[in-house]
């Protein structure tokens, strides 16, 4: 086949169009993911030309001899549960309110969404300064309200540091859920809302019987995205506490990074990554199957 003929073949054209993006994706995203699984069964310091196969030793090490792993695991679970509750609920409330015809709603939407587009590391830097126990925002406000007794070392105290970090995360992520819910609300059939109103249904009844059922797909999407992004929480923890004090804000993503890039135990770091990857898959795979079924029903 001559070159001219071959460029006439749609399959060749498809290949030319597909290869650049998919090759980069395969090399720089899929390959590292496969490599992380292989690494988790090896012992490697990142420099040695030889990687030594050690079976499941890295896994037994993190499960039985690494106390930080379980702290990080517990914190990741707490963090995920909080991310499943607070940003979606606040986001839904904001979306429902901002879906009403009220004065200045575009400006209000913009305000709630603004933190989403700021670099998480900048959010961390902002909040670290706001949490400053002496001159930070919270300490100043409490002092001016005469509530000095409530001032805490927000990020320095083991018992509250995780929640302090989460408040910053909440501030940043609520706008994202809000925008998704606002888009979902546009799909609520207005004719049904009107019909219910005419039948004398109150606001709560309309919400419960019309809006909420119509929002179900959106709710699923928001919850799945909340879980995924909460598992990825890295920048904001790294910037605010670095996992401290005394590992009280340590999380799986950060601990995997620390093991590999700072302690140079790539095997253990990879094993932690695989655990996190498996947890993510447990959420993602059912979700993908659900969306596929959903599409087939619609098609």
């Amino acid at each position: 086949m001559s070159l001219r003929q071959s460029t006439h073949d749609p399959r060749v054209q498809a290949l030319v169009l597909l290869v650049p993006a998919l090759a980069i994706y395969a090399v720089f995203a899929l390959y590292p993911m496969i490599n992380v699984v292989i690494l988790s069964f090896q012992k490697w310091n990142g420099l040695d030309p030889n990687r030594q196969f050690v079976g499941v030793a890295n896994y037994t090490a993190i499960f039985t001899r690494d106390p930080v792993f379980w702290v990080a695991f517990r914190n990741t679970v707490i963090w995920t549960v909080m991310s499943l509750i607070f940003p979606p609920v606040v986001g839904l409330l904001l979306a429902l309110s901002l879906n009403q015809k009220i004065f200045g709603r575009n400006g209000l939407r913009a305000i709630f969404y603004l933190p989403v587009i700021i670099a998480p590391i900048a959010v961390a830097t902002m909040w670290k300064w706001m949490y400053d126990p002496f001159f930070g925002l919270f300490s100043q406000l409490l002092t001016s309200w005469g509530m000095q007794g409530w001032i805490k070392d927000w990020l320095g105290s083991k018992d509250i540091a995780l929640y302090s970090v989460f408040v910053a995360y909440l501030w940043q992520t609520v706008g994202f859920s809000m925008v998704l819910f606002l888009a979902g609300l546009q799909n609520v059939p207005q004719t049904l809302v009107e019909a219910a109103r005419i039948d004398g249904a109150g606001r709560w009844a309309v919400f419960k019987h019309v809006t909420l059922p119509a929002l179900r797909p959106t709710i699923t999407i928001v919850l799945v995205l909340s879980i995924i992004s909460s598992l990825k929480a890295f920048d904001i923890v790294y910037g605010l506490t670095g996992g401290g004090p005394a590992q009280s804000t340590q999380m799986l993503a950060l601990w995997a990074f620390t093991q590999a890039m700072q302690i140079f135990d790539f095997g253990r770091g990879a094993a932690i990554s695989v655990v996190l990857l498996l947890i993510t898959m447990a959420v993602v795979v059912p979700y993908l199957r659900w969306t596929q079924r959903h599409e087939e029903v619609e098609a």
Binding site: A29, N35, G46, A253, F257, A260, M261, S273, L276, T280
Partner: peptide, 21 residues
């Protein structure tokens, strides 16, 4: 499917192998 799968995988998990690569 491979592409959709990619939208969900957290790269934060792969920082060390990415560095190696």
């Amino acid at each position: 499917l491979l592409v959709v799968f990619g939208t969900m995988i957290p790269f934060q998990v792969m920082l060390a192998p990415l560095f190696t690569l």
